[in-house]
């Protein structure tokens, strides 16, 4: 089965491109501190220097090496999105399974809270929560988790509802297994592939969200190098030095597109339907 899926991935050039670009991004993010000749906040040259042998992509408004900042710029975004989405997936799986398995009041309460959350636009939620709790990385992670958890709860609950009436769950109940054991042994293995796809889908959306927040001044604070922040810093000079905006935009979009291509390709190869409903929630 895995061998067959592997073959299907190899046969799909689009998926292979996605995987290659994604791998490159991850490698750069992981190795950036060793790849870059300058410190990310080091004022290495004069402001707005053109590309040269010393500064391959020139320098930014303060004279920092732009290549260095570009290579470092994905690290914090990716980590924040990763942590936030991970929390959303774990919490979403827990509450989604709990809602489906317990039913009744617990289900009602969880699902009405989810409905409430869905009714509030994400950007509004973030715009209130971040200034309210203070602009810091932990708050940012929790806010990301909150934005995505509702969608995960819904999809997990929907799948779990189809698992609950099956014989193997009834058999576990008749054995007298505890609720926790039923969730972990009977439900979790059956929702695991859904969770993986959810994780990948939410990841690309979360990366965009973190970058937008940084652009709006609600996300990562200067002087940390970050693509969203770099776009926002460069946007005032778009007529004279458009590269300040173009480079980080290319970096961000290639990462997101590569992530989406990989998710879709891998999920299709594994035969998971989840990939077909790539939705925000």
């Amino acid at each position: 089965m895995l061998k067959k899926s592997g073959k299907r991935i190899l046969r799909s050039p689009v998926t292979m491109i996605g995987i290659a670009v994604l791998t490159a991004h991850m490698a750069i993010a992981a190795l950036a501190p060793w790849l870059t000749p300058y410190g990310s906040s080091e004022l290495a040259g004069m402001p707005f220097e053109p590309p040269s042998r010393e500064f391959w992509l020139g320098t930014d408004i303060l004279g920092r090496d732009y290549l260095t900042r570009l290579l470092m710029g994905g690290r914090i975004t990716i980590s924040v999105a990763l942590c936030g989405v991970f929390i959303a997936i774990v919490a979403g799986a827990f509450f989604g399974l709990a809602a489906a398995w317990h039913g009744g009041m617990i289900d009602e309460v969880i699902m009405r809270l989810v409905d409430t959350k869905v009714a509030i636009p994400s950007i509004l939620l973030v715009g209130v929560l971040i200034p309210g709790f203070g602009q810091s990385v932990p708050v940012l992670i929790l806010v990301i988790a909150l934005v995505y958890v509702s969608g995960v709860i819904r999809t997990v609950r929907a799948l779990a509802l189809t698992i609950a009436p099956q014989g193997f769950v009834t058999a576990a109940v008749l054995r007298g297994e505890s609720n926790l054991s039923i969730m972990c042994r009977e439900f979790l293995p059956n929702v695991l592939d859904l969770l993986c796809v959810e994780f990948a889908i939410r990841m690309s959306s979360a990366i965009l969200l973190v970058s937008s927040l940084s652009f709006l001044g609600l996300g990562i604070s200067p002087p940390t190098p970050d693509w969203g922040l770099m776009v926002s810093e460069g946007v005032g000079y778009i007529h004279t030095d458009p590269w300040l905006v173009i480079y980080p935009s290319i970096a961000l979009s290639t990462l997101v597109v590569a992530l989406n291509l990989t998710t879709e390709g891998v999920a299709n190869a594994l035969g998971l339907d989840a990939a077909r409903g790539m939705t925000k929630g």
Binding site: Q166, G167, T170, A171, P189, N190
Partner: peptide, 16 residues
């Protein structure tokens, strides 16, 4: 007291 169900496939967890 043990029980055996009608549909053999759904009474066995597909992931175990």
């Amino acid at each position: 007291i043990q029980m055996v169900f009608q549909d053999p496939l759904s009474s066995l967890n597909p992931r175990l």
